[in-house]
Write a protein that binds this DNA or RNA. Structure first.
Length: 755
DNA sequence: GGAGCTTCAATTTTT
DNA sequence: TTGAAGCTCC
């Protein structure tokens, strides 16, 4: 087994341990993916049929990379037969296969976040509720977390705890919304992201023979990023592995950054309970980063209380210190980083792809884009409005969806009057009323006016009929026409192509190009079909809902600077990493400052960011930042101070210190320039000119008294039990019936005093 | 029915 | 600042 030679002792042991339940806890850069790929290759070398292996990842990208790496070890053919993909992708396929038994059409639609929110909004309005109180995104979060815990609408309604939480937060009708949402999705033949896992659980629960079939198929199951799985995923894995118990999960609790969306670190603990005789392997040697970076990351993560004991170390060089750069404004931050990349590239002759700029939120990308563009540096940007989220792309895809599944009402509403064909709101209102009165869907009405008469004028009716018959003519050919051919015809007949072609504005041109891009993507997809079969448009649709920007890597994007959120960077590595926007209320985000758990997650996010860097890492913050229109002062992130000072070197921008020199920590400490900073035991991280953080809740802070009843945005009503500390760090202990006792910093907590 | 104007709200992360 | 949603006027 010569390919095992490249592994260290621990890695090798975890690879050759074939049977039984096992867990690999792997520090950042310790070769987690390596172990997984080698393990799969090793299984095959021991004559395990690739058809019997299931490998679940968190992102499509991870799956693809793993597949490529396995192919290098065992060859394309065998690699191809391993079932590998994200939870969502793998189980959406399985669901398609058995859709009929749970009452769904084979061509069920997958609603993305936009579709879901839009449907929720419709429902909220139909129920006569105020969408300022029942904000669609909030409602979505609530329903999503219910689904991830396998709570159906019916169970939601009778769950005393949940119902009381909703009542406390002033949203007693949430269960109604959930109920309607559930049935509307079902009628539309649509599943949202959470449904893909939820319904898989139902399928396996209610149809044991189907579960059994997959239990036999998947003799070996591997799960990557186990710390990011939610309860729903956990249960799927547990059920599938129940027969053979050849289950290998790999993860790192320190990199758990998706608790906000239901990931449950308990799953690691559950594992010990479910499989008491499991084997535990730890990979602690980091091969990626310099000593400085590894040590800095360790010192940051040690601030977290909740973690599994691990000792991550490296035998790599010490490397350079981590630079901490202060800029005056966010625009300057952009320029500074762009210049730094320019200089480093010149000096060291590196590729652009060696550099990454990582930020907390997508909205931060703009100054960097501008600065890079000015210097003529090529970059690629992930996230934000992804290609598949663009209006024009979604519009065309909506036609496809409607052809595959006419009951898909979100798609229908999107395109029935786009391009403009004279079917306006008043017609749609009439149709909706008729549909509701008869308890049928919109499509039922518009495809059969004789059964469902609608009081709209003949002209509009004729236009609708034309639209319907166009779609029907495509639907008939869906299964025997190649996806590309059909897609092209749809783009033409629908009028979308012409509409965009006629728009000669720069945006219009780019929209047209995006449609062409989508079509050529479909072309590629259609041509990748196996012999004797065709890839149809419904096959394409099956994949497309689960694709993100990161999955659309183009050849010409290879040598470019990477801009992405830290979340998106998970699992990646770069020689030079810039972590920008290192400011309080941005990173850590102000949304997480209410609880220790959330702050710890944010810290793990910073840990992930740091450990992306191989050779060099720069932290950067701006003293002033534009936030919806006006300039706001900000303070350096607390996370900077959590790094042991000996790993840091401080510098400020030329404009700020006047001399164009960069400062080392000592000079910085000595107060050069003396007028601007005072000598402290710690490097002075306070922005110039600002003393203490401003208490933006000063009135509240002084007037709040023990015994007050208050309302909190998230926790609902509560009573103040204790007040401690002085402004601006004044804290209150508040008891919330919905979520227990919380200690809140008054300067951050958005509280309202009731009495 | 639709274009164009004004207002208003929002800003966390993603399958 | 941006984008969506609502409103007015044709």
């Amino acid at each position: 087994m010569e390919f095992l030679d490249g592994l260290n002792q621990n890695q090798r042991e975890s690879v050759i341990n074939m049977d039984g339940p096992m867990m690999v806890i792997a520090g950042a850069g310790a070769g987690k993916t390596r172990v997984l790929t080698y393990k799969i290759a090793y299984l095959m070398s021991k004559n395990i049929d690739p058809f019997n292996i299931l490998a679940l990842t968190f992102t499509n990208k991870a799956a693809r990379e793993m597949k490529d790496r396995i192919a290098k070890l065992v060859g394309d053919n065998d690699a191809k037969n391993v079932t590998m993909g994200t939870f969502h992708a793998v189980f959406s396929r399985i669901l398609r296969h058995h859709a009929n038994v749970i009452g769904y059409p084979t061509n069920f639609t997958i609603y993305d976040t936009q579709d879901t929110k839009s449907l929720l909004k419709t429902i909220i309005r139909e129920l006569g509720l105020d969408d300022k109180i029942y904000k669609p995104s909030l409602v979505y979060g609530r329903i999503s977390s219910a689904k991830n815990n396998l709570i159906s609408a019916a169970q939601y309604e009778i769950n005393a705890e949940i119902v009381s939480e909703d009542r406390m937060s002033g949203k007693p009708q949430l269960f109604q919304i959930y109920k309607h949402y559930e049935s509307r999705c079902f009628k539309a033949g649509a599943m949202d992201f959470d449904d893909l896992l939820f319904k898989t659980n139902l399928l396996f629960r209610d149809f044991p023979q189907i579960l059994n079939q997959y239990q036999h198929k998947f003799k070996y199951i591997l799960v990557d990023e186990y710390q990011d799985t939610n309860y729903s995923q956990y249960l799927i894995v547990k059920k599938l592995a129940a027969l053979h118990e050849n289950l290998c999960v790999v993860g790192d609790d320190a990199q758990s950054i998706y608790a906000f969306r239901g990931a449950n670190i308990e799953n690691i603990l559950n594992f010990k309970r479910d499989y008491p005789d499991f084997k535990l392997f730890k990979l602690e040697q980091n091969y990626r980063s310099t000593k400085t970076i590894v040590d800095a990351a360790n010192s940051v993560i040690s601030n977290n209380k909740n973690q599994i004991q691990k000792d991550v170390w490296t035998s790599n060089d010490q490397g350079n210190k981590i630079k901490v750069h202060r800029s005056l404004t966010d625009n300057e931050e952009g320029k500074v980083i762009a210049n730094s990349i320019f200089d480093s590239k010149q000096a060291k002759g590196l590729d652009y792809s060696s550099f990454a700029i990582l930020y907390r939120t997508n909205a931060q990308s703009r100054p960097f884009e501008e600065a890079l563009r000015k210097l003529g540096l090529p970059y690629k940007i992930y996230g934000g409005t992804s290609f598949y989220q663009r209006k024009e792309v979604k519009d065309l895809i909506a036609y496809f969806r409607l052809i595959a599944n006419p009951n898909d009402e979100e798609a229908l509403k999107r395109v029935i009057n786009y391009p403009k064909r004279g079917i306006g709101n008043s017609s749609m209102d009439e149709i909706t009323i008729t549909a509701n009165r008869n308890g049928v869907g919109l499509w039922d009405v518009i495809s059969d006016f004789s059964t469902y008469p609608v009081s709209i004028n003949a002209g509009a009716q004729a236009k609708i009929k034309g639209f319907v018959s166009m779609l029907q003519s495509f639907s008939i050919r869906l299964d025997e026409t190649s996806g590309y051919d059909l897609a092209q015809e749809v783009a033409k007949s629908s009028g979308i192509l012409k509409e965009l072609y006629d728009d000669k504005s720069p945006e219009g041109v780019s929209r047209y190009e995006n449609i062409q891009g989508l079509l050529s993507g479909i072309k590629e997809f259609s041509m990748s079909a196996e012999e004797d079969s065709i890839n149809t448009l419904s096959d394409f649709l099956m994949d497309v809902a689960l694709l993100t920007d990161a999955d659309k890597e183009k050849e010409e994007d290879k040598d470019k600077i990477t801009l992405m959120t830290i979340h998106a960077a998970k699992g990646l590595e770069f020689p030079f990493v810039y972590i920008v926007g290192m400011e309080e209320n941005l990173f850590p985000s102000q949304m997480v400052l209410n609880s220790r758990e959330e702050l710890e997650e944010e810290r793990r996010l910073f840990y992930v960011a740091l450990t992306r860097a191989e050779q060099s890492c720069t932290l950067s913050y701006a003293v002033n930042r534009f936030k919806w229109g006006n300039l706001q002062r900000s303070e350096p992130s607390r996370f900077i101070e959590e790094i042991d000072e000996i790993h840091l070197s401080f510098e400020a921008s030329a404009t700020e210190i006047g001399g164009g020199r960069s400062l080392n920590a000592r000079a910085f400490n000595k107060g050069i320039p003396s007028s601007q900073s005072s000598i402290t035991s710690k490097p002075n991280l306070r922005p110039i000119g600002s003393s203490k953080p401003k208490a933006n809740n000063s009135d509240l802070s002084s007037s709040l008294k023990v015994g007050h009843n208050v309302v909190h945005e998230q926790f609902g009503k509560g009573k103040v039990i204790q007040i401690s500390g002085d402004a601006p760090d004044k804290k209150a202990v508040i008891f919330f019936p919905s979520s227990g006792q919380k200690t809140l910093l008054l300067r951050f907590a958005k509280l309202e005093i009731i009495d």
